[in-house]
Design a protein around this nucleic acid. Structure first.
Length: 278
DNA sequence: CCGGTTGTTCAGCG
DNA sequence: GCGCTGAACAACCG
């Protein structure tokens, strides 16, 4: 008997994975049928030493940001899909899997990913309150961490996994556009309301990402990421590799304010006022 | 067909 | 020891 697949997760090849936090939440839901099932075979091309897990039941599937955790009674395997990783449930790709798990009711295969064995209990390793998708997400803690790094650019802060676990480059760009902040603004220069908007949208956009991704409509909801013109003012979108991370940023210099110092002179006036949100 | 990237780690250098 | 850079990994879309 094969595990039942969520119908919305079926057309693998048609849609790219987009390995940011919300996609890992989708993975977690997709493998629910294997929860509590005993491992009957483990294989794959991974070179790491895995303990003898045969016959062990999956206690739980967890996630922390972009980390996917397969918890057995005494051990936890951590999967990170990096940029190119993928998975298949009750299906196989042409290439051999990096990690393959067989259960009585089906199989779970991972490709092109990083596989690690956690050295301790996940609860001792991970701070769930920094995961923007987690029910324990704590925006106040994020605020405290941000106040300690005033000189960090907003684009780098959003990608900091110890503050915003799960946020990736797409979410970064969309959040900064939503809150009208230039990616190279320093965290310490943001007005308090912008800072709390940044924290709030990091989570809110991630949940929108989750819903759109499930419905296969994520890409069409991008407002700025990979766009050529600004959807608010129609001026050209700037593409620049920004911050210490040097990741792609897409932004509108008219609609996203550059907070960079003395409050009086530095903030450029908008050429065109942005259209109101529909 | 090639260039580019949703991400992270690590060696090497100054 | 630090911070930065480049390399490495690897798949697939346009």
């Amino acid at each position: 008997m094969m595990a039942k697949l969520e119908p919305s997760l079926k057309p693998w090849s048609k849609y790219r994975f987009m390995p940011e936090g919300p996609s890992i939440v989708i993975l977690k839901e997709a493998v629910k049928a294997f929860k509590g099932k005993k491992l009957i075979e483990i294989g794959g091309s991974t070179k790491i030493d895995l303990p003898d897990l045969m016959g062990q039941p999956v206690k739980d599937f967890k996630s922390w940001g972009k980390h996917f955790l397969i918890c057995f009674p005494n051990h936890t395997i951590r999967i990170h899909l990096m940029l190119f990783g993928s998975y298949r449930i009750n299906e196989r790709k042409e290439k051999p899997a990096k990690l393959s798990l067989q259960f009585p009711n089906g199989e779970l295969n991972f490709y092109a990913c990083s596989v690690k064995l956690l050295e301790d209990d996940p609860g001792k390793i991970y701070d769930w309150s920094s995961d923007v998708m987690n029910k324990s997400w704590n925006p106040r803690k994020a605020g405290t961490k941000l106040k300690k790094i005033p000189n960090t650019m907003a684009c780098d802060a959003l990608l900091d996994q110890s503050i915003f676990s799960g946020v990736g480059n797409i979410i970064k760009n969309e959040v900064l556009f939503r809150i009208s902040v230039h990616p190279e603004s320093r965290i310490g220069k943001l007005p308090p309301r912008k800072l709390s908007a940044l924290i709030k949208e990091a989570r809110d956009y991630s949940f929108d990402f989750l819903e759109w991704k499930k419905a296969f409509v994520l890409k069409k909801h991008w407002l700025i990421h990979t766009k050529k013109t600004c959807p608010r003012c129609d001026l050209p979108v700037i593409k620049k590799y920004t911050g210490k991370n040097k990741r792609r940023s897409f932004f509108c210099t008219n609609c996203q304010l550059f907070y960079r110092g003395s409050k009086i002179n530095s903030i450029k006036k908008r050429a065109i006022s942005p259209a109101k949100k529909p």
